[in-house]
Amino acid sequence: MKNMEDQVVLRVFSKIMIPFIIIFGFYVITHGELGPGGGFQGGVILASAFILYGLVFGKDQLAEAAPPRVVEGLAAFGVLLYSGVGAWCLLAGGNFLDYSYIIPPAEGAVIPHLDGGAEIWGMILVEYGVGITVCTVMITVYNMITEEAEA
């Protein structure tokens, strides 16, 4: 595990692939309501990019790219984002997590929004909440396992 960085093929290949994996992860999260996928799958794909980085370049480099403090904070932030969307809907006058209320209605518009637009906004936010939590928790689990191994 220590000498993986010396292997040119691994190093170059992973450096090329990681941006694409990250883009694909965000794509899967964002397009979860249109195609297959969603926050969970996208989060796992995002995490795999970081884990690949950690595998090839070592855990110190990974800790530099994704500081454990930030990662663990983001894990909590994901849940907060999810429940925050729910609370926002509540404050806007709807039920908890009733996405119809997420966009304030225009003059004379009828609540709830039934064309799917408001729901898509709610879903994207919620899916990002799930994605952030899943991604960061996966990175944390990987961190914990390797930390124990190398200590």
Binding site: G32, E33, L34, G35, P36, G37, G38, G39, L97, Y99, S100, P112, H113, L114, D115, G116, E119, I120, G122, M123, V126, E127
Partner: peptide
């Protein structure tokens, strides 16, 4: 009630 294209995500997220 105006759920989105992907039924699975619609069920899970809404």
């Amino acid at each position: 009630h105006g759920h989105v294209y992907n039924t699975v995500t619609s069920l899970l997220a809404d």
